[in-house]
Amino acid sequence: MTLLRARGLTKHYPTEEGLLDRFLGNRQWVRALDGVDLEIREGETLALVGESGCGKSTLGRTLLRLEEPTAGSVYHRGDDLTSLSTAEMRARRADLQYVFQNPTSSLDPRHTVGELVGEALDVHGVARGRERDDRVRDLLETVGLRASHANRYPHEFSGGQRQRIGIARALAVDPELIVCDEPVSALDVSVQARILNLLADLQAEFGLAYLFIAHDLSVVEHVADRVAVMYLGELVEVGPTEAVFSPPYHPYTRALLSAIPEPDPLWEGDRIVLDGSVPSPVDPPPGCKFHTRCPVASEDCGEWESHPDLESVGGDHAIACPYYDRVESTFGGD
């Protein structure tokens, strides 16, 4: 069952808001999202991967309407979230939650943990009075903290503990979907594993769906049911984790996978090094946006009217590259 479906989701930011630029009409747009189609199913973990600045966080925030999309729609329970009123959207937030990358800046330093977690309960009228306090204590214990921590302030906790507070707050309203925006990348490696295990346990217990935004593919391989690969504001490959991590590949996915550090020192992999950096999203390349760095690109890749669409290559697995078979013939199956 589909929980959330995005259609043609687009988000453009103006660059300079200077008065003169606005007057002269030479405002430029950063195309953070360029027509993304995506669906998240009940109880699954969908990982969203890509380089820094490719629009992963923007997609996560636009899906929950923390940023207003420039165009496109997001459907949840048959309603288009982008056309809901502010009050209707507020009520809907009880089902759709968000865990931030930086647990320090996402917790208001002036409130105790109990107040921060309880705020969500108050807003949605989940529980009041004694019941509310009990629920806050339950939630803290659910995420591996102590009930007595409710009276402490965020600055008294370590990074991993703060992220647990962030997770408890998201869980408070009993959501269906939690968008986890790189929830572990600000944390120490040993703590990362614990937080990831906590997320896995919570998913099993409450049947949550996750949109797991990450740039660490070795983490993604363990936590995701499906993976969506993003490049410059567009999806280039979507599919079940095993399918994305094995041939056939999109050339960009292939390059990302070759960058995963391999623990075996005898492993002789062929690392694909992409030349240059990601082109500016203000002025993305024409045709396929990846053709400027693509190891298998041909002349015509830059001449298409638009970015190629995602085409199914079998089952759930879709790749946005008509020449994906060249990847195997160029780099070999193994």
Partner: peptide
Amino acid sequence: EEYVLASRALGVPDRS
């Protein structure tokens, strides 16, 4: 600040 966005994500009304 991110905690303001976090409160919006929880559905807290603007005036609160």
